[in-house]
Design a protein around this nucleic acid. Structure first.
Lengths: 278, 278
DNA sequence: TATAATAATGACTAATTGGTCACGTGTCAA
DNA sequence: TTGACACGTGACCAATTAGTCATTATTATA
């Protein structure tokens, strides 16, 4: 494990329990058993650390969702799987999720805002795909509202698990939510969110994940993987990022090579989005 | 206006735009045109200030809702009115609401947590009343889920207004939400939240509003009101709080006296809850 | 006007913070 | 053994903070 990873893992615990502002770099380094100087060898600043944490968590989440939606083949199950994935992944990374929730509204700086915006839009896009796939024209006029209702369900029930340690019967919960969603999709007639409103919201869809960062992701994967076609593909993709030279077919091929490599699932979906193979 | 009120009003602006941690007492006093010492004459600490702000905002909100529910007489309109009130009051006190949202998850200290818990429970109780009143047995088994769905709707659409400055067509929004709620109430069959789960959550329903604070509210009302039966009733109620001596009928009478005095609407509902006249 | 009481001031303190940097320490190849 | 190099250290710095308190200004009272 690199020092960077160590710092990230250990700092998650502190940030989750005390919040970002209330955790000093001193505390982090003590908790890692390293010196203050060593911290600044891995991260340029404290802000860079939390940005990295949030990126890591959101990248994972977003790409899992993306993966689910892209490979969907069962209309009945997709929505259930989606809900389950949301609760399950937040449950498994509850500390990261807590940081995310805590700092989301705290707008440390502009970078964080646009990051959040970016990830939110990705998730909304996925939810919309699900709705269009599952309900088709049935929800034609109310689909944007449905997106927000689904997010509302998730957010509200999520908090229940965060604030009170409810026994996590995710199966019942998700079945219950699927039913609610079905009912809304089939019986609501009064939309609030129109295409127009949605367009207004979408405007500042700028800053995605920086190329730099994707390169870092790839490098991390390369470190973790043994000599193989997959590894070589990753190396070539990294080169392509640094200096584009291959045509789209070759890139697509390289992506296919790493598609089923579990370790780099996130990377695959991030790259897929970066090279615009949606 | 007392110095305390001045500080509260001015600090809301700063907290809303920068957050609590990022706003120094220095800044607040400069923005008020007073000295640092003067600040500490009104508030024992910076924490006490934000606690007061959140109390003020939540007391107002909760009592408006309580008022609406208590005086309901039109099943068709109640839910609409409730939604409208929520959006409208948050819209009108958007800065306070923003502070509330920002600091809600930041758990400054235990006092804040239990305060939030307390207010949340009051609101949930009101929503449950609405559901029971509007749907009766129809939503018998899913009413607790409905409470959380309603909260989810509000939270999610609220954020839309906060993060993007959407044109606020609250009327359409509320009609749309009422329809969604109706649909859920009539067609859902799979509950997730049972009576049992709800009981688990309710456990730490301790610390309400401190008696001290209610007294301060009353004193503020007394200052603002001219000589009248209402003023005298307030004075007597204040005495009763400090040293209980009257029987419940008399107290109830005093409460009735101030019931329709607009300036002390919050106080009325807080007192009603304190003396347990629900 | 004189005196007491209250309100308000702002320089000050003590503590904490994020971030730096001159100085080890261990590990290579030559 | 030497020297080069990266890795790592923790004392230190400048800036900022919440909160205090001796002093001054203002007001009310006699």
């Amino acid at each position: 494990m690199t020092k960077k990873q160590l710092i990230m893992e250990k700092s998650i615990e502190l940030f989750a329990s005390q919040g970002f502002d209330a955790t000093s770099v001193q505390q982090i380094t003590e908790h890692c058993g390293i010196s203050k100087g060593a911290f600044y060898l891995s991260f340029k600043s404290k802000d860079e650390l939390i940005l990295a944490l949030i990126d890591h968590f959101m990248m994972e989440t977003v790409s899992s969702i993306d993966c689910l939606v892209t490979n969907a083949n069962d209309k009945e199950k997709l929505l259930y799987d989606f809900y389950y994935l949301c609760f399950d992944s937040v449950n498994q990374h509850s500390e990261s999720a807590l940081i995310f929730i805590k700092e989301q509204t705290h707008h440390l700086n502009d970078k964080l805002i646009s990051k959040m915006h970016y990830y939110n839009q990705l998730i909304e896009k996925s939810i919309l795909s699900i709705i269009e796939y599952v309900y088709g024209d049935t929800a034609q006029y109310t689909k944007y509202d449905l997106v927000y209702c689904i997010q509302g369900f998730i957010k509200t029930y999520m908090e229940l698990f965060f604030f009170y340690n409810l026994p996590a019967d995710f199966d019942t919960l998700c079945k219950s939510l699927v039913e609610k969603t079905n009912v809304l999709a089939r019986h609501t007639t009064i939309p609030f969110l129109s295409q127009n409103l949605i367009e207004m919201i979408k405007q500042p869809l700028n800053t995605g994940i920086a190329k730099e960062q994707i390169i870092q992701m790839i490098e991390q994967d390369i470190d973790e993987i043994e000599e193989s076609i997959e590894k070589e593909s990753l190396i070539l993709l990294k080169e392509e990022l640094k200096e584009p030279s291959l045509n789209r077919a070759l890139i697509k091929g390289l992506l296919e090579n790493i598609r089923h490599q579990v370790q780099c699932k996130s990377t695959y979906y991030v790259l897929r989005s970066y090279f615009d193979f949606d």
